[in-house]
Design a protein around this nucleic acid. Structure first.
Lengths: 160, 160
DNA sequence: GATAATCTCTCGACGATCGAGATAATCGAC
DNA sequence: GTCGATTATCTCGATCGTCGAGAGATTATC
């Protein structure tokens, strides 16, 4: 591959990084608007995702999802509960466990903020053909695979 | 646009979010390995980017780049200087200003971690034709524009 | 039942960030 | 040149998020 082709590919990597920065900024903005910190937002997203899958997250599983110790999860849920975004619900089957339920207002706020972004993204894709989006999809999956490998462990080079 | 087409586009949005999470994890991993926090990593990246552009970041500009007040920037630079990643250099022309220079070891560490990722990403793009990558590029730019608009201000809907 | 395992919470400490104000250097007007 | 306004950075004290250690409560195992 000649230099020109390599450089074009490197630029796509930089574009990806720029997109990453802006996407993080969207989350930061949601946090600012609602008086939350980044961890709180990550937690709400995790709870929403779980709810969408039909599961009710427990305190422990939330801690795994956002990588926090139990003491921090307690403080985190205290904060979210204090402002009314989540509710603690003791599991009747295993009363050690504490389920987490999102309030309707929190669900609505999240849907408005992130749902609006999703809607606009879909709108911006209207002009693309199915074939073009298939290419994009394959590319995204390939890039995600590479990135995930780097995120988990640091191989000197990809196990080719 | 029918439901099937819309759903395919929504899935690309989810793929993008997943990629974002993994990319953040790469930065987190760099932080873990080197005993830094996320802010420190963001600061080092900002300093590296500036250095690549041939500029030496001052303390104030670094604060703007990572969105921290001056008190926090002082503490931040103290941390980075203490472990030898950056050096304070008084600007001889305006001695109020403090320039920041990255150490060779820090540059090398960053190049190894993030440069390795960049190399692998380029490698994963080898199988794509120029035309395919042009589509991907256009798509990335379009998506970044939409995301940036949401990150800066929250319009009820894109100003179409 | 006794004991081990699991899940969450409490407590004390540490560290990152901030607001207010201090310090030092530069710029502009005279 | 000199003085006041401005700019850039730093110091100090306080606040808040996170953690480690361990307690309390519940369930599983024998």
């Amino acid at each position: 591959m000649d230099d020109e082709a390599t450089r074009a590919r490197q630029e796509l990597g930089l574009l990806l990084r720029r997109l990453n920065v802006e996407l993080d900024a969207v989350g930061q903005r949601f946090a600012d608007v609602h008086g939350l910190n980044r961890t709180d937002v990550r937690a709400l997203v995790a709870i929403m995702d779980a709810a969408r899958r039909g599961e009710a997250l427990t305190a422990g599983r939330l801690g795994e999802a956002v990588d926090l110790r139990s003491a921090s999860v307690t403080a985190l849920v205290d904060r979210l509960e204090r402002v009314g975004h989540v509710r603690r619900v003791r599991d009747p089957e295993d009363r050690r466990r504490v389920g987490l339920e999102m309030s309707q207002t929190a669900m609505a706020a999240g849907a408005e903020h992130f749902g609006g972004l999703a809607r606009d993204l879909v709108g911006a894709m209207e002009g693309y053909s199915d074939e073009e989006l298939a290419v994009v999809r394959r590319w995204l999956e390939d890039m995600t695979a590479v990135i995930t490998r780097h995120a988990r462990a640091e191989p000197p080079s990809p196990p080719s």
